[in-house]
Every structure is written in structure tokens, then in C-alpha cells.
Simulated scan of single mutants.
Amino acid sequence: MRYILGMLLGIALASLPVGSEAGNVRAMRKQVESTLLVSGRIVIAPDGTVKDYKLDDTRALGAPLEQFLDATIRHWRFQPVVLDGVAVTAEAPMRIRLVAHPQDDGGMQVRIAATWFGEEDDGRPATDFPRQDRINPPIYPREAQMLGAQGIVYLIASIGRDGKVQQVDVERVNLRTLGTEQQMAALRRQFADASLRAARTWTFLPPTTGKEAGLDHWLVRVPVTFLMHGQRLSQPGEWESYIPDPTVRDLPWARERLRLAGSPEALPDSGVFPLTPSRFQLLNAPGS
């Protein structure tokens, strides 16, 4: 669905010095996405339809986008949530990632890029899931820090029964700094390498209860944010701009779990997110 937005979406991206390659930067600017993270709660009826929902803050949306979200959310259908063999009404925290692309005529094409439905209200103890033990932040890459570059790395890690990281890889690296194709590729490598070095030293607390407690390993997704001193993360309800990672990385050892988990774009910017099937399985496409 397409909307004409009467305001500039997002914040201005920091730009790297490029000299004679300014044309390359102009071309790369076409990859920039303006994005808004919308948070709220959703209530799912026993038949999987949406019984009710509430958004936390709609001031950044405007009437057209509110109407778009209302029509889309009420059309969603979920796998019924079953408790003790009976389909029940279930409530969950919800996050929706909206993405806007500028059009040649000055308008904006808006779509839902990702959704996330939290699990903290399902009554299961925290010990049912892998949790962080010691997760030391990575060292900010020196060159990226000198340039004032910022970004977020999504890591996928396999955790053994001793809580140590058995295997870890980069799922994607989104940037909040604009440069040439070569500059941004270098920044993605620097952020990815720094995150991997740190992640290999991390330890976790394996599940001790629940149906997955007996497994020999667990898969988790961990966002790693690189943010310059004095800067802050955008909050739900605030438009921002970023450059999504154009690389499609295939992680064979986690492929099936990643397919079920979906995009990480609607996740909070920090935390440990198990790649386990959620109770809240959206059956139809998020919307566009």
C-alpha cells in the first residue's frame, strides 16, 4: 500500500568523507531505508483471529498509516495457541517494523518488513530458555570509531551444555552511516569481525527446565549494537534511517531454525533471543 507522506522520514545519516567518489555515495543513498518500530500488544482469539490490539504510540504514524496498520493487523491469522490440549485466548507484546522507500514522484512506498511477538506472558519460567551469563561487549573497531560509524550486527550462536559458544556466525550487518560501496563493505567487515571475536568468549546459562532442557545445544540470536558515545538508540515510535545489509548469508547449521524464526528487524536492539518456535505463529504475510 502506498502513501504520500508530508514530512521527511527518518533522521539524516552520518556520511563518510568520500572525495571524488561522491557519485558512488549518491547511488548508495538509494539503499537507505526510513524505518519506524511500532510497539504494542495483541490479543489472539482461540480460532487464531485477532481479537484486539493496542499500539503504544501512534504520533509518528499519521492517520493513513494508522488505517493501514489497523486493516492489516485485523486481517492477520495465527496458529491457534493451545494450552493443555485446548485452544485459548492469548496475549503478547508486539513489535512491527515499518519501512518506507521514496518514490520518483516524491511519495513513499510503505511496507511491514518484520514482526515480533514476545513470549514473556506465556507463564513459562526463564529457566526454560538459554540466558546470558557473561556477554562482554566487543571492542569498537578503531577505524570505524575514528569515522564516527555506527551499525548493528545480528549474530547467530550455538550454545553447548557447558554454556560456551560452540559456533557463531553473522546473519547481517545494518549500518547507520552512509559512504561508498567500498567504505560500507569495509565497515560491515569491521563490525562483524569485532562481534565474532567478542562472541567466542561469551557464556550462557543453558535451560534447566522445560522441553528443551535435555538438548545438547541451543541456537540463539544476539543483536550487537555499535553506537558512538553520546548517541542513543531510536525508540519505538521514532523514525530513523539505516542501510540494510544487501548480503544474503546462508548459515547451513542454523538454516531451518532461521526460516522459522523469520527476520530479526523487529527485535529489540539488545538481548538474547532463542531460535525456538514461538507460540505466536503468524500464518499470513505481515502486509505491505
Rank of each mutant, 00 (worst) to 15 (best):
4 I>M: 13
5 L>H: 13
7 M>G: 05
7 M>R: 14
7 M>Y: 10
11 I>L: 12
12 A>I: 09
13 L>S: 07
14 A>T: 15
15 S>K: 15
16 L>A: 13
17 P>G: 11
17 P>H: 12
19 G>C: 08
19 G>E: 12
27 A>F: 06
34 S>D: 12
44 I>S: 00
45 A>G: 03
54 K>T: 02
54 K>D: 01
55 L>G: 00
55 L>N: 02
63 A>S: 12
63 A>C: 06
64 P>C: 00
65 L>S: 00
67 Q>L: 10
70 D>P: 04
70 D>M: 02
71 A>K: 12
72 T>C: 03
75 H>I: 00
75 H>F: 10
76 W>R: 08
80 P>T: 01
81 V>Q: 04
81 V>E: 01
83 L>Q: 13
84 D>N: 13
86 V>P: 04
87 A>I: 04
88 V>K: 11
89 T>G: 08
90 A>R: 14
93 P>R: 06
96 I>M: 08
104 D>H: 11
106 G>K: 02
106 G>W: 00
107 G>N: 03
107 G>A: 14
108 M>R: 11
110 V>Q: 03
112 I>V: 13
116 W>F: 06
118 G>W: 03
119 E>W: 07
121 D>P: 04
122 D>A: 08
124 R>M: 12
127 T>E: 15
128 D>A: 14
128 D>L: 02
130 P>G: 09
130 P>N: 08
130 P>I: 09
134 R>L: 15
135 I>R: 15
136 N>T: 14
136 N>D: 15
136 N>F: 13
140 Y>E: 01
141 P>F: 05
143 E>V: 15
144 A>F: 04
149 A>V: 14
153 V>W: 10
155 L>M: 12
163 G>T: 08
164 K>Y: 13
172 R>N: 14
178 L>A: 05
179 G>L: 11
179 G>D: 08
180 T>F: 01
181 E>L: 09
181 E>G: 07
184 M>I: 06
185 A>Y: 01
187 L>R: 12
187 L>A: 11
189 R>I: 07
192 A>T: 03
194 A>D: 01
196 L>W: 10
197 R>C: 01
198 A>Y: 06
199 A>S: 07
200 R>C: 00
203 T>Q: 07
203 T>H: 04
207 P>E: 00
208 T>R: 05
208 T>V: 04
213 A>S: 10
214 G>P: 03
219 L>D: 00
220 V>I: 13
220 V>F: 07
223 P>C: 04
227 L>T: 11
230 G>N: 06
235 Q>L: 15
242 Y>T: 07
247 T>F: 01
249 R>E: 03
251 L>S: 09
259 R>W: 11
261 A>D: 10
261 A>Q: 04
262 G>A: 10
264 P>E: 04
270 S>G: 06
273 F>Q: 05
276 T>N: 07
277 P>G: 04
278 S>Y: 01
280 F>V: 05
287 G>L: 10
287 G>Y: 05
288 S>E: 13
288 S>W: 06
